[in-house]
Design a binder for these strands. Structure first.
Length: 448
DNA sequence: GCATGATCATGC
DNA sequence: GCATGATCATGC
């Protein structure tokens, strides 16, 4: 470490040095706050989510708590953030939720410039601490299970974050703060903040008399996952630069292949259908177009964009409905909509790639577009999900059909009919998943 | 022709 | 071994 001894405070870190603050934070790894400092007598409000962050600031770093536009360590420009992690099915740590950066001040934001934005002033450099989320465990008893990260945004990510910031600002400027949605943007989202209940205080917004829910700038959960996976973030592969963000970069990748036949594209990449039943061929071919050898592009992973290929006929009518990940009967009855995979997927953005058969049996790449589900349709999907949950409890053999909703239905998704899961009725039934109706996808494709 | 049930190749 | 991203098959 550099010679900063002269500036060390009595606790043993130098508040003017980000590196020193990081080293001091690393002493927390593997421990809980209560194991490191005396937390006896501090039991109030232990269910309050934001509390661990302010407790770490107050009891560990002994800095004054502030929620103003300055970073927590103003002399070094470091903002401290604690966030929850959980283990996924493979046992790896992943973000429990999005990382909230800063409340959005609707009135003040419209006068800000990106270069001097209060968001970047506060969160340009962040010290991230990760604690293992456990229900009913007081936050100061939650363990910091992985090393803290001193995080600054990679250059190419800032290209997109700036565009996201501008998108949010623009919507507010147009008096549409009440219509903000996380699906509007890619890395940086405007997430709902506050109870959401009756107590929630609605906020004034510029250029409209409609009151808006309070929202905060937040990094999408997928983005936080990448930070956890990589320790920091590798740069992407799409080539984001200047004002050329994810939308422009992907558009440029597809441009040379528009109106070309699948066979031509296939030949160009020397990437062919493996057999007559290679059902992921179109999807995998799209990733070749995007410059990936597999099924992953860093920028799309980080923004939670999901690539879906849709084959349509001459009239743009999809050949099939659109499937989503399978669910477990025994899980869904214990789950809330907000925590469900289907809900998570429908909040994300989709990159639809349309292959059209113009009548001669030859498929051509004809249209590409980003889409996220409008609020009212998500509410309808929610209704179908709730109805599914209800009927799984009642009789899992009878689940919502496509005739029961214009948006979604439930149908098998399994290896074969012997690929089953247990139900609350004690019988095993073939695995199923949620599907977006063919007719609904048809509407979406037309409006794209 | 559509809704619904059945199933496949692949990557991790 | 299983989830994923789909497509195939069949009966009405």
């Amino acid at each position: 470490m550099r010679n900063t001894v002269g500036r060390m405070n009595s606790l043993g870190y130098d508040p003017t040095s980000p590196e020193s603050i990081l080293q001091f934070a690393k002493r927390l790894t593997g421990r809980t706050l209560a194991e490191v400092v005396d937390m006896s007598g501090v039991i109030e409000n232990h269910h309050h989510k934001g509390d661990l962050g302010s407790m770490v600031e107050k009891f560990y770093f002994r800095i004054a708590t502030n929620s103003l536009s300055e970073p927590d360590f103003p002399e070094s420009g470091v903002e401290l953030k604690t966030t929850g992690v959980k283990r996924n099915s493979k046992g790896e740590f992943q973000a429990k939720e999005r990382l909230v950066l800063k409340m959005i001040d609707y009135v003040g934001l419209v006068d800000e410039q990106w270069e001097s934005s209060s968001l970047m002033e506060k969160c340009g450099m962040m010290l991230l601490l990760f604690s293992l989320y456990e229900v009913d465990v007081a936050v100061f008893n939650r363990r910091f299970v992985i090393d803290p990260i001193l995080f600054t945004f990679p250059e190419d990510d800032l290209v997109q974050i700036r565009l996201d910031w501008l998108t949010i600002k623009d919507k507010i400027q147009r008096g549409l703060a009440h219509e903000l949605s996380e699906g509007d943007t890619y890395y940086l989202g405007a997430c709902r903040k506050g109870s959401g209940g009756e107590k929630e205080r609605l906020r004034r917004q510029p250029n409209s008399n409609v009151l808006a829910r309070s929202r905060a700038f937040a990094l999408k959960i997928k983005y936080v996952n990448k930070i956890i996976e990589d320790g920091a973030l590798r740069t992407g592969t799409l080539g984001l630069t200047g004002t050329h963000g994810i939308v422009d970069a992907t558009k440029a990748k597809f441009e040379p292949f528009l109106n070309r036949t699948v066979d031509e594209i296939s030949a160009q990449f020397n990437f062919y259908k493996k057999g007559t039943n290679d059902k992921s061929f179109f999807h995998d071919l799209v990733f070749r177009i995007l410059g990936s050898g597999g099924r992953s592009v860093p920028e799309l992973d980080k923004s939670g964009v999901e690539v879906k290929t849709i084959r349509v006929n001459r009239d743009w009518k999809p050949f099939e409905a659109m499937s989503f990940p399978g669910f477990k009967y025994m899980d869904i009855v214990a789950e809330d909509w907000e925590d469900s995979v289907f809900h998570e997927k429908l909040e994300q953005k989709f990159l639809f790639v349309i292959f059209r058969d113009s009548g001669d049996g030859v498929l051509r790449l004809e249209k590409v577009g980003y889409w996220n589900m409008p609020y009212r349709d998500r509410e309808e999907a929610r209704r179908v999900w709730e109805e599914t949950k209800r009927r799984v409890q009642l009789d899992a053999r009878d689940l919502p059909k496509s005739s029961e909703s214009h948006v979604a239905h439930v149908r098998p998704k399994a290896r074969d009919s012997r690929d089953t899961l247990p139900t609350p009725q004690g019988i095993d039934l073939v695995k199923k998943c949620f599907w977006l109706n063919r007719e609904y996808v048809f509407q979406v494709v037309q409006d794209l």
